[in-house]
Design a protein around this nucleic acid. Sequence first.
DNA 1: CTGTTTCTGCAACTCAGTTGCATGGCGGCG
DNA 2: CGCCGCCATGCAACTGAGTTGCAGAAACAG
Lengths: 165, 165
Amino acid sequence: MTDRRSPHGDAEDLIRATGERVTAARVQVLSMLLAAPRALTHREIEDGLDRTLRIDRVTVYRVLKWLTRQHLTHKISSDDRIWRYNAAPSEHDTHHAHFKCTACGEVICLQELSAEIRPRLPDGYSPEIMEVTIKGLCSECSPPSSGTPRTVRATTDSGKGTHER
Amino acid sequence: MTDRRSPHGDAEDLIRATGERVTAARVQVLSMLLAAPRALTHREIEDGLDRTLRIDRVTVYRVLKWLTRQHLTHKISSDDRIWRYNAAPSEHDTHHAHFKCTACGEVICLQELSAEIRPRLPDGYSPEIMEVTIKGLCSECSPPSSGTPRTVRATTDSGKGTHER
DNA sequence: CTGTTTCTGCAACTCAGTTGCATGGCGGCG
DNA sequence: CGCCGCCATGCAACTGAGTTGCAGAAACAG
């Protein structure tokens, strides 16, 4: 079933399976997301695209929106006001968690949560989905290793738990 | 200590207690946040300010950043790329939760979580804080009542769990 | 290969949030 | 109680993610 004949084979199959049009932009973006070990921003995707294809940034936005509508990817919102996209791992992820590195900004998906959390809601409020984000340091940015964290993409000073100044 | 002589008394005291300057803008914004039953956006704060004071939008941004640095408020990031601010309820809220209404966009703070959630992280990843957001409908927007949800501030099509089209 | 439908590229726009700079006011000190 | 330094404010211009409108291009059914 999963015969990987070309790097973009999987992506193409997934897109074709939706019954909608298979276009270069869709295949490119999806296969890039499938190959990524973490969630990617629009910017990262745009920069990583094959330049010879001349794919416009607006097209990338539209492809991402389309992929999300098709449930082939999912969109992760973060405190830096930038959306990141990940090839959808599971079907209905009612409560799956994300990890965000406060140093380099990397975002990854975590597996299903073990505990059932049920914070008490005020009367009349009805919960639908729950989103959990763990913040901390990724393996690259943790102190024990080399010392200097990588790339550090300015987090727009979104300190929340950390003391800032 | 907490003598509430004027509507802005509390706010003024809290600001004075930081040892830094007490200005009209800071008092106005903080007392507005203290009085609000939910988290407010920059826009809502700006619109709600006393027009006769002629407080600039940039000042509001700076005041909010300052208040957050002083731990008098805390900043909540949401999927609509707009930050909301809430007068800080507890000191170090390592894991407190938020609720966001998917219809009107209202955001409120929830109390401490009961369960200890510890999703497994990959090797080398160190967690610091956890953020939990419950999405659903607030009491105003829940079906049982009147029928028509209130204000409905366009959520920039941020469907994530919900099927969209 | 032709027609229809949908995507794409381009350009211009929106909107939250930021930055630089000159002015103004808070509050410490005399 | 008035002066002065430093911090906060107003103003204007900017940034950068994401959106919209429209005309031309490409996908796919027939």
